[in-house]
């Protein structure tokens, strides 16, 4: 039996150009500054994509395939834990849609084909709001949020 699937739709408005927002996703040198990770790919349809932790160990945490790319408007990729690569049931999908909006950009992240209540579901439901806030903050002010921040231990 296939587990119930679910999806999330996240929206943020960023004072930047669509090109800058698109670049912030696909350019490792930018992504590492606010995401703590790099998205590494040659960004052609069907190409492999890896989500790499931007530290000395450079662990490949997520992998997938570029399903659709139309810079600077839309990017769709499959999304799986590196340890679950090839497992269709554990492979979700992420779409980035970038639209000009009143001098800003409306960035919509749709993460679907997610197993309800699964590990990826729990991880991304905490992760996306932080990553998107950090991207917005970085693109607007040059300052990212520490995305690995934990409550300070007293």
């Amino acid at each position: 039996m296939t587990a119930a699937q679910t999806e999330f739709v996240y929206v943020t408005y960023i004072r930047a150009t669509p090109e800058k927002v698109f670049d912030a996703i696909v350019n490792p040198a930018v992504a590492r500054l606010y995401w703590g990770h790099e998205n590494v790919s040659d960004w052609t349809p069907g190409a492999r994509w890896e989500h790499v932790r931007a530290n000395d160990a450079r662990a490949v945490e997520l992998v997938g395939e570029v399903l659709e790319i139309d810079a600077p408007k839309r990017l769709v990729m499959s999304w799986a834990n590196a340890s679950q690569e090839g497992d269709a049931e554990k492979t979700s999908r992420v779409a980035f849609d970038i639209e000009p909006y009143d001098g800003m950009v409306r960035l919509t992240v749709t993460h679907d084909r997610l197993e309800a209540g699964g590990g990826m579901f729990n991880g991304i439901s905490k992760g996306w709001p932080i990553v998107l806030s950090s991207m917005k903050s970085y693109l607007e002010s040059g300052e990212a949020i520490d995305i690995f921040a934990k409550p300070t231990a007293a």
């Binding site: 999806e7 999330f8 739709v9 996240y10 929206v11 943020t12 996306w128 709001p129 932080i130 998107l132 806030s133 917005k136």
Partner: peptide, 10 residues
């Protein structure tokens, strides 16, 4: 309708 927690995070 989808909940969008990004403004709450901000």
């Amino acid at each position: 309708h989808f909940i969008n927690p990004v403004p709450l995070h901000e």
